[in-house]
């Protein structure tokens, strides 16, 4: 089970959203990469959601 691996290895985080959460992890030297996220263009939101549902 993937969840068991999570509980038994070092947590390595990809942070998508609030920068402060990544900075908190950096401050305690936990491995983290912050994504410079921004909302997808409005026109692609519906299309993207459709692709997501199709598993593309």
């Amino acid at each position: 089970m993937e969840v068991d691996k999570l509980l038994n290895t070092e947590v390595r985080v990809i942070n998508v959203g609030l920068r402060a959460f990544a900075q908190d992890l950096e401050s305690r030297k936990s491995p983290v990469v912050h994504v410079d996220w921004s909302p997808p263009p409005a026109s692609s939101v519906k299309f993207g959601s459709l692709l997501d549902r199709l598993g593309v």
Binding site: L6, E10, R12, I14, V16, W37
Partner: peptide, 25 residues
């Protein structure tokens, strides 16, 4: 900073958790 999850995964081999705090939509 990477702009997508894919590039972030390349930058952090062995990543095992994504912390998401973007707007609910």
């Amino acid at each position: 900073l990477p702009k997508t999850l894919d590039t972030a995964v390349q930058q952090l081999p062995g990543a095992n958790l994504v912390l998401i705090s973007v707007p609910g939509e």
